[in-house]
Design a protein around this nucleic acid. Structure first.
Lengths: 359, 359
DNA sequence: GCAGGAATGACGTACGTCAATCAAAGAGCC
DNA sequence: GGCTCTTTGATTGACGTACGTCATTCCTGC
């Protein structure tokens, strides 16, 4: 049988009340007595029954996900994973609230963050670019005792508790190795596309990409990044012109997650399947592109894993409990057509309640 | 506030007892009444508080992992993941017992399996080759109400509830694409090594490998598999002879998980780093081989994920609950030096208790 | 309309923990 | 020794669910 608090009390020769005080480090216990209790705990190998504890405590974890209101495929995938996970974690007394902020408005974001403590939120997963305003908002949240994790995009110079996502520089390096090795012939050029080079991810990926390209594939010339800002027309023109100007272009590296515009553009230019095309994030479009051969590889992170990891970490932080780093490490996945995971129907479809969804 | 069973009772206009009967589908409720209760559940959005339920039920999940007693790196990694997971899932009222069986003795295995029900085990994760004896043992376990999942190696013609692992044919296809694309020049040959071609994994991987090779890389000749049976000397001789006989060998595909013998052998032959070397399973040796450049890619599955998934599935099956397929899908991961996950120190080191470890 | 079985209700206890109370015992100080 | 102030003990009622017993009500067929 698993030992309980009563066993500790008996073993340590103290009362249940004292054990409780020690367990929840409440004041009113002499250091020596506390040590005796700890010793008893160690001796009989007691582990707190979190379920019973949470039941008694009437605890529920109210966690907020704060995301930009951009309507990209990636965000949509993330939201899908979030609703799935939210449904499952009902069993874990977890209650997820979603907040969206105007992508280009750090002050609006700060306002949303500032309002979270009053909404009873005890932990926040935040996907946002790092700005001074955001830095301050995070500090203020932390001071109020909320746990904060950075999601997908790290916020290294803030007081966030944890980062859930991949090392984008390593992701860029990975992309470079694949590009370099997939290009069979000798000298060639590679085009680099990006939604916006203001995003930390894009910069880091590019950095990693260039590192490897210079060191391991000196015969391959890498063109400067083009920022498309989500504008298909701009992309189409540029890709067409560049391909015409440099006939030796053998590959395209797409730093961002928007792959649809690129593949349709290559299609219209009649160049689909002729170039090595590598991009990021396994969105539905990327998936079809891999299946059709329009893309050769996608570097991605498992979004479901990202969301679940964020939830676990936030719960652990809220309890000041430990986290299992090996489980929380998000892997940089390489996906080609052959190891494409089967696409599953969306989850049980529990929407986050409307009341919570609106702002 | 989250709705409780009492709310259901009030809402449906029945007593608590009836609600309970419906929830745990016990007999003694008219179909019409049961439907009314279900309707009330739907209406108020009740979700059972699994924690409280398990607490009340005094339930704990006693799950067994049954593995061969081979001392390979892969098994060792698996065991590591298992002890880590076992430690964590103490909080989930889960209690893992480990059983090892002599690798070549199906009858011993059957004996071990047969003894599980009496040990109070409610679910079994089994890694073993499929034999008639095992098939019967599994059927008998299922009849006694135990849940059975196949681990790593599938048992498709048995009555197992679920398979936790990867599609090895797809893994072989993936290996083929990488081999083919990494070999820069035109025509070449590829050597294939295997511990034993009797294992289902090896056969399936080879199958997938050949499929892709024939279809997409007709210029590459694939040699027949050599079975090394874990004997380094044999491997060394064969690799040396084959390399001498076919000077156009450009790559080696290692079907099994033992990579150490291969890399040391290439080292001694002075051919390390000159061939495209691709293998399976991210063991510590494979990791060093990737880091040193002795291997080019490893196709692997996340062992931690495999173990946790098996635990989740077994718990769910034991409760006749649903499982979240998207979370339980094990991905075929491609690992190269650039996306090698950081190696973490082993977990908190809770050994499975000795009493349980010894058969 | 009545027996007989099936369906339902009422109630109590338990699970392991938390949190609060009040009382009692001990320590430290003058 | 008498006084605070701190530490400890004993007890109790939740939390949401399971599950048993026993009593009662509802159908169904005759």
């Amino acid at each position: 049988m698993r030992p309980t608090v009563n066993d500790i009390a008996r073993e340590a020769g103290v009362s249940l009340a004292t054990v409780d005080r020690v367990l929840n480090d409440r004041p009113g216990v002499r250091a020596k007595t506390a040590e005796a209790v700890q010793e008893a705990i160690r001796r009989i190998g007691y582990v707190r029954d979190v379920a019973a504890a949470n039941l008694a405590r009437q605890r529920d974890y109210r966690l907020a996900f704060v995301l930009p209101d951009t309507d990209s495929q990636f965000i949509r995938t993330l939201l899908g994973a979030l609703t799935d996970a939210g449904h499952l974690s009902a069993a874990l007394r977890t209650d997820v609230v979603l907040r969206r902020f105007p992508a280009e408005d750090p002050h609006a974001l700060a306002g949303i963050l500032a309002a979270l403590p009053e909404a009873g939120v005890v932990g926040v997963a935040l996907m946002a670019p790092e700005t001074p305003v955001v830095r301050d908002a995070i500090r203020s949240l932390r001071q109020k005792g909320l746990a904060v994790v950075a999601l997908v995009s790290d916020l290294p110079n803030t007081e966030r508790d944890h980062f859930v996502g991949i090392d984008n520089r390593a992701a860029g390096r990975t992309a470079a190795v694949l590009t370099g090795r997939f290009l069979r012939a000798g000298p060639a050029r590679v085009m680099v596309l990006s939604d916006s080079m203001l995003l930390r991810e894009s910069i880091e990926r590019r950095l990693g990409f260039d590192e490897v390209m210079q060191a391991r594939f000196p015969g391959i010339g890498v063109l400067p990044s083009l920022e498309t800002h989500g504008q298909g027309a701009l992309l189409h023109d540029f890709v067409g012109q560049t391909l015409a100007r440099y006939p030796d272009i053998g590959g395209i590296y797409s730093l961002g997650s928007g792959q649809r515009a690129l593949t349709t553009c290559l299609d219209r230019l009649g160049r689909a399947g002729q170039l090595v095309v590598i991009g990021h994030e396994l969105t539905p479009h990327a998936r079809t592109a891999l299946e059709s051969g329009a893309m050769d590889a996608v570097i991605t992170q498992n979004v479901g894993h990202v969301v679940r990891s964020a939830l676990r970490v936030l719960r652990a932080k809220a309890d000041r409990g430990p986290i299992d780093l090996s489980q929380e490490q998000i892997r940089i996945e390489i996906v080609i057509r052959e190891n494409l995971p089967a696409s599953l129907p969306p989850g049980p479809g529990t929407r986050l309640s409307a009341a919570r969804e609106e702002n």
